[in-house]
Amino acid sequence: MAVKGIGQVDKKYDGSNLRIGILHARWNKKIIDSLVSGAIQKLIELGVKESNIIIESVPGSFELPFGSKLFFEKQQKKQQPLDAIIPIGVLIKGSTMHFEYICESTTQQLMKLNFDLNIPVIFGVLTCLTEEQAEARAGLIEGKMHNHGEDWGAAAVEMATKFGV
């Protein structure tokens, strides 16, 4: 596989046999909805059947790590295992240290889940200084940035097909 540039791989991955879970926070609904839509769009583009994209929600980004673990276990009990999970959240800095604590703990625990669950857990949490930055990264401000949800969908398919366990 020839690498074209940073972040661009010369291969299209086939997600037709994958079951992908998306677990999203409910805070910052407009931004979250756009990110989830971007992830779904990319998953479908890469062959994941719409019926194999399972979506659940949790109150906020802090709940994503534990929610992802429970989501994974729920699907296992139903004998419908997931091949990857995309936890999606948005954290926007305020005037207190709350942002730093939530960012750090959420990031660490989501990373740990990759090893605990033995499936790819894609880091789909925007950590932004302003709401405008978050909207740009969700593709809501034309010409500013693209929808990062699409990147997360692509990463889930690549990781699950390349290293599926």
Rank of each mutant, 00 (worst) to 15 (best):
Q79Y: 09
Q76V: 03
I86S: 00
I6A: 07
L43N: 07
N52K: 08
I22W: 00
L46M: 05
L18T: 04
G139A: 09
P81Y: 15
K30I: 02
E131D: 03
C103D: 11
Y13R: 08
V9G: 08
I55K: 05
H148S: 10
I54S: 00
V157Y: 02
T106L: 12
G15S: 04
N118A: 15
C103N: 11
G67H: 06
S105W: 09
I54D: 06
I6V: 13
S57G: 01
Q108T: 11
V36M: 01
K30C: 00
F72C: 06
I122K: 04
F99P: 00
S68V: 03
L113W: 03
K144A: 11
Q108F: 09
Q80S: 13
K93Q: 14
E56F: 15
G5W: 12
V157C: 02
I85H: 00
V125Y: 08
M1F: 12
A84S: 11
L18F: 03
H146D: 07
Y101G: 10
H98P: 06
G67D: 07
K30L: 04
G143H: 05
A2D: 10
V90T: 01
F115L: 15
V58H: 04
Q79K: 14
N114D: 09
L35A: 02
G21V: 04
V157R: 00
L64H: 06
A138V: 06
E100D: 13
T127H: 03
E104D: 12
K49C: 14
K112S: 15
Q41V: 10
P120C: 10
T106C: 09
L117I: 08
H98F: 11
T130L: 14
Q75L: 05
G5D: 12
V36A: 04
I88W: 07
W152C: 11
S95F: 14
L35P: 02
S95I: 13
V48T: 02
I6G: 08
D116I: 14
S105N: 12
H146Q: 12
F123P: 07
E132Y: 04
W27V: 00
W27R: 04
E150H: 01
Q41F: 07
G149I: 00
I44S: 00
G7E: 08
I22E: 03
G164S: 07
S34L: 15
Q41L: 11
G143P: 12
D151N: 12
L113V: 05
I44T: 06
K93M: 14
N147E: 13
L43M: 08
N118R: 13
E73P: 07
Q133P: 11
M1T: 10
L110H: 02
I141K: 10
F72N: 06
H24Y: 13
E104T: 13
